[in-house]
Design a protein around this nucleic acid. Structure first.
Lengths: 195, 195, 195, 195
DNA sequence: CAGTAATCGAGACGGTACGTCCCGTCTTTGA
DNA sequence: TCAAAGACGGGACGTACCGTCTCGATTACTG
């Protein structure tokens, strides 16, 4: 969200921003990303369209913030094993992406980010940054335990995890099997030769 | 593509269909998925809009066919090892998805397929079916060699491969590193030795 | 209606022409002139569009024939007075123009005839010719009785009669008052005593 | 023209409305009513289609206003006789309907008004109201002079005048003879038994 | 009696216009 | 300066018809 540029003039009403976020999240959950137009968000939030454009530069940024910012960033528990830690991490990804609004928004959102040059580069950062930080922490702990070597391919693992979860949830729309996170994590742990 | 219902009336002109496919592929490659409108395709193909809607029910179906139907279905070589075969398969996925029109179309296309209820179910079929067949063949050969156990998680592997490739190519827009296919394949081969 | 050009080849099926006329008249009566498309006429008549275009050059000609050709050309009774004869003539105009299909078709039909250069000149002929012949006969009888002078302004009277009837029926859609014909005729009879 | 419902929001730009009116009048004069599409009007006026639909509900209303609103409502001169006054009135009708844009628009316009139920009733009001007011004034003056009795059939006379003029100008497309107005007026004056 | 030719129903063809929706910007009044 | 409201130019949508054309099949006259 863009911050108010200066202290001059009438300050922005924080309640407008909150109402916009809520309206956007509701519309995404109800009708999907494509049906969530800026005009509809403004109407539901009781706000003018400019009030939205003043804060966000477009629909992708707004919906991203409406849908993904609420995500938990709670630290993952230390389960004592790499596979346990990784399962917990993948499970948190699954939960984040399978929330109704997130699942409804994800494909369209990724498409708009991928189509806009100035947004392409930020996809990994915005969508995967929290997961990446936790993945690095998990790998660090595993290294300290002696479970893994150094120089693990963090980005490859991250894309693989995210890709697998994205294809299951965002694309096919299936409810995730309860052991999905465990199976993915197990495969990856073996795959990176953690023994 | 819908086939003409019966032999009655004037038959559809195959050249129109071909011109539409070509125009759609060009426009996707030039301007991306969002900028490829039915009207623009019609204008470039020298065709009326109805001639497009007669054959395809909308932009997603048209662009899918324009971009992905040309895909190679050549059989993969038998390299003698699971890792070699899998590398070849992932490499073919990388090449299919990194063709200019395909890379430009993929995110928007997946988003539209995911958003339309009647198309959601077909995503795995339409986008991944050829890859799945080849994956099954690769696993069969590996099983005959004694490299793997039976009951390998085909769909899990497929989603993982596709997800990893999709995130690298479709989303980030980066040119694929030359060894990307090998690294993904290596990770998966090790990963599925588990159960 | 265009006649079949020569005796060679398969002769036209007269039943097709009749079915087209009937379908056109029905559609005009049901939905009005604008809703009567050539395609709809063809579909209802169980006929291909070309079978229509082979016989008529367009919608105006077809609808004109469908709606106005059935008109009575029965001779008017000799009532013994100019006013009586003229009332009968105007009444026949009223009846012709207030038939459901005619009233529904007339404004659109006149508009299309007026807009097409090759049809403009024929309006008076096609729409008013039978009325004109009867008007001349009425005037002749009145002259022989000594009721009128010669050189009556036939076309002026005809336009005036037709215009008054057209405005009442075609335009306003009102049901004609029972004495409408008598009042118009009375006014005209008095009016033409001048010069 | 629909007025902006309240003082809220950006007011409509009068120049847009004026440009639309002018473009519509030009297109009607150049190509006739049928060739005057909303899209073409918008393009010539340098305006979006919505800007037209915001002000008028369709082509008939727009063209009516473009073509007939400019009409003179100047009071008619008092010539001292009913026949003179009526001639002046008919002459003003002739001039109004024989302006290029009006003559080109009239048949199609009447057809569309007659075909649309919500417009039918307004034809007399919109097209003939100014003429009717002047006709009443003319009759009043004649009554004060003692030329006519009371209870003259205003609507009958009006339809007759309008019908005669409409058939001469709108339908046949002929240039009006110089004495057309005088002849029509003379006939009507006699017809209503003004002595 | 075979050949030729026009007609038939069907529906595809390139094209134009429709009226609606949304985009992102601009312009008003009011706080 | 921000706010709600809504007008603005622009562009895409999917549908409906236009009048022409191309099919395979049928039905007559002609040589």
């Amino acid at each position: 969200m863009t911050s108010s540029p200066a202290g001059r003039g009438r300050p922005r009403d924080e309640r407008s921003g909150a109402a916009i976020i809520q309206a956007a999240a509701e519309l995404v959950a109800e009708g999907g990303y494509a049906a969530t137009s800026i005009g509809a968000v403004a109407a539901r939030a009781g706000v003018g369209k400019d009030t939205i454009y003043r804060r966000w530069s477009g629909k992708p940024e707004l919906v991203y913030e409406a849908v993904f910012t609420a995500a938990e960033t709670a630290d993952l528990p230390d389960t004592g094993t790499l596979e346990g830690d990784l399962t917990a991490l993948v499970q948190s990804l699954v939960e984040e992406f399978s929330a109704p609004a997130a699942a409804a928004a994800l494909p369209g959102l990724l498409a708009d980010f991928a189509a806009a040059p100035h947004l392409r580069a930020t996809i990994r950062t915005r969508f995967l940054q929290p997961a990446k930080e936790r993945l690095v922490a998990v790998f660090d702990r595993a290294g300290q335990r002696g479970e893994t070597s150094a120089n693990l391919p963090v980005d490859l693992v991250l894309d693989t995890l995210a890709g697998a979860v994205f294809f299951h949830l965002g694309i096919t729309g299936e409810r995730p099997a309860p052991d999905l996170a465990r199976r993915i994590a197990a495969m990856i742990v073996k795959g990176i030769e953690a023994r």
